[in-house]
Structures are given as C-alpha cells and as structure tokens.
Design a protein around this nucleic acid. Structure first.
Lengths: 213, 213
DNA sequence: CCCTCGCTAGTCAAAGTTGACTACCCGATC
DNA sequence: GATCGGGTAGTCAACTTTGACTAGCGAGGG
C-alpha cells in the first residue's frame, strides 16, 4: 500500500472541494513532502486515476482566481469516502514499516471514533507479535545475533524494530484511552488545511530523511 | 533508493555468472521475497536495465540444462561492481527507514572491510542524530506528545523510531569492533548462494510483513 | 510600457513495479 | 502414447512514480 491515495483522499475530503495545487499545498503544510514521496506528478496522477475510478468527482476546469492556468476541482464521492476509511483502517492495523503510511495513518486517525482506533491498534499489536514469533522460530534473541553469522543481524534488526514499534503503540493506546485528542463524533473536528490566502508557516522546512541521499 | 538493484547486483556478483531464475532463487534463499518487494518482473527488468547501462554484461541465450526455455546469463562488469559498492555504502550510511534497504545492507556489509563498515555506520549515526535534532526543533519529547495535538504523535513516532535505530546500530558497531563475523579481506568469504542442485531449506517460509494485507 | 521574476497549475516521457500470463520440457499416470 | 502436473525461465500490459519541463498571469522595476 502506498500512502499517496490515503493522503490525497484525506486532503480532498477535508477541503470538501479542491484542485491539485491545493492538495499539493496541504501536503506541504503537513510536511508530507518531506516524509512521504508525494511529488506533483504522483498527486495529479492519483487525482486523475481516482476520478476515473469514481472515488472522486472531477468538476471540469474553472478559471484560476489567483493567476495561472485554469484548474480542475475535485470532490470526494461516497465511494471515495469508503475507500478513504478502508485505507485508513488498513494503514492503522497492518504491520507495514513504511514511515509515510504510518505517519499518514496517525495524521488521519482522528477521523475515526476513539474506540475503533484502539481496536485497530490492538489488532496491529497482534500482527506484530505474530510476525515477531515467526522470526524467533529461526532466531533466538537471547543467544545474541552471532548465532547465524552476520545474517543473524538482519533478524536482530527485525526484532529490535518490532519491539520498538510495540512499545510505541502501547504508549499511544494508553494516551488515547486516557482521553487525549479529539476523535470523530467528539465535538470540534481537527482541521489541518490552509484557508484561502492563509500563509503556510512550514513552507520552507528543513531536510528530513527519505530524501537524504 | 530501491533495494532491487543492490540485491540483484549482489546476487550476480556472488555467482560470478547467473541467469534471472538463479537470481530469483537466491533472493528466495535469502528470504528476500518476504521482506523486499522483489517480484520476478522487477528482477528481470532490473537485469535488462542494468545490462543496458553497462553494469552487467549479457551473454546471449544459452539452452537450459534443466528443462525449460533457454536463458540469458549475466556477468557483473567493472562498472557494475563499482555501482554495487556505491549502493551498498549508501544503504549503510543514509538514514532510510525502508526495511528492505536496511536488510540488504546488513546482508552485504561483509563485502566491505571491517573498518569501513564501522566508519559508514558511524556516519549513519551522525545523520540520524541530525534528523532527530531537526524534529526536536518543533517537538520537545520531554513534554509528551500532546503538545501539538495528535500531530505530535507523528513526531513522537519519528523520535521513537530514530532512537530505536540508534540503539540497534550502537550494538551492531560494538559487535563488529569486537571482532564478530568475517569481512572482506579476512579469509573465507561468506557465500550465500545455492550450489547447482542444492535444495533450498527456506523455500516455503512463513508469512512476513510488508505483504501482510 | 515592456520585461522579467516568481507564483500558480499542471503536463509529459522515462523508469520502475505488479500480477497475471506464456512456453518449454520432464516424468509419471492412465 | 496421450496427457497432466510441476518445475524452469521468462514476457507482457497496466499501473505508479519520478524529475524535468511548460505555460499563464500579475506585480514591480526601470
């Protein structure tokens, strides 16, 4: 699963109606150009593709209000909303180590009810533990990484990574259960979009990994 | 950076001369079909592409010795070896969270001299710390994740991930400095390929992440 | 009044990835 | 002696990603 569809659907959804450049700007506002691989080409491609698949509805070209060429505006459809929620749930539960997917999932988690997020995260824990168990069938952490030659270091890395993620999720679940943040159906929704004309305070962020060469 | 080129170059290099199916089998032997996204299509594509770019030399079709259609055999060139080492060094130093790149890097690290690997890993540490510092400009871990709303959880995840990787690398460097494993120029090289006719004990492994749906 | 700079909004070709499909041959089975 | 399954070896079309490029417009300087 790539994070692009989730990000683009989420951006269009929060706007109600958006053109490509707006989506691009939201992702930049979220810092997503730094931790996801959301380049312009991918964004426009995703918009067109999802319009073709009925997840978005394309309103044909409106003249730009701010200089520049005319633009196509998109609105999310019923099917698109379902797909968004499906992708979001999948991103929250599946043990996918891709940072962009994880970050997007956390960013959008408040679009689901609190109880469901906890359930999904617990399912994620179950899957991580299952994967961890399948690794330790070959590799016994207690005996140290040397047991299989340097290849053991790979499994050591996996176990380390899995354990770190488990610890992190436990913390997150704890905070959510203790009432942190505002989830779907709990009053004021969180809105992470830029109003028309508002300036983006994060537009010129510093370098982040995944683009480090 | 995708792991495919590194994996394919490394496989061809260890064989001396290999056809696509052999590479495919090596990757399966290494379990790479489970933690990397190395599908047949990608492997054959990479072979052709790298042959076109002069990284591999393609010996035109030899009739198969074991049933099946004729096959193209590849040998690594001077340029290919350089590219392999370049990719390997990059995979070891750059803070790229992709599991397949990291795992490949560890798998091949013994192709470099021990001292160089330590140097590269220390550079990796430097970069991770730098990235960590750039995150903590916005986010103070000591104040807990709630300070920025649920968006703080994303940064909390990043810090957690970075710290876990730092701890893991420190351990790895320690073991390498203490003389573990056999690196380039230290006698018997590690060979991770299947001899002609040898059976693959890992051919039917269990499910691993990245393919978990 | 013209020209260039910078922002707006997007296109496009080339490369990479995916999953399904093909073709060949051997040995066993009916 | 047909044919059927399974391993060998690879192709292909569809889709996605990437990076470089284009084109319109307004503001401001000279």
């Amino acid at each position: 699963m790539s994070a692009i569809r989730l990000l683009v659907l989420g951006a269009v959804r929060q706007h109600g109606r958006a053109h490509g450049y707006q989506v691009r700007n939201d992702l930049e506002y979220w810092g997503a150009h730094e931790w996801s691989h959301a380049k312009p080409g991918s964004i426009y491609h995703a918009l067109k593709q999802m319009a073709k698949q009925g997840l978005l509805h394309a309103h044909e070209i409106a003249p730009s209000t701010a200089g520049g060429p005319p633009r196509t505006e998109y609105e999310i459809t019923e099917a698109g909303t379902e797909e968004f929620l499906r992708l979001l749930r999948e991103a929250l539960t599946s043990y996918d180590q891709k940072m962009d997917v994880k970050s997007s999932a956390i960013g959008f988690m408040v679009e689901l009810p609190r109880a469901e997020v906890v359930t999904l995260l617990k399912e994620r824990i179950r899957r991580i533990e299952q994967w961890r168990a399948s690794v330790t069938e070959h590799y016994v952490p207690e005996e140290g990484p040397e047991q299989l030659g340097h290849i053991g270091e790979i499994m050591n890395l996996w176990i380390h990574t899995a354990d770190a993620e488990l610890a992190w999720i436990q913390g997150l679940i704890g905070r959510i259960e203790d009432g942190a943040y505002s989830f779907a159906g709990e009053g004021e929704p969180f809105v992470g979009i830029l109003a028309e004309g508002e300036e983006n305070p994060y537009a010129t962020g510093e370098r982040h990994p995944e683009d480090a060469g």
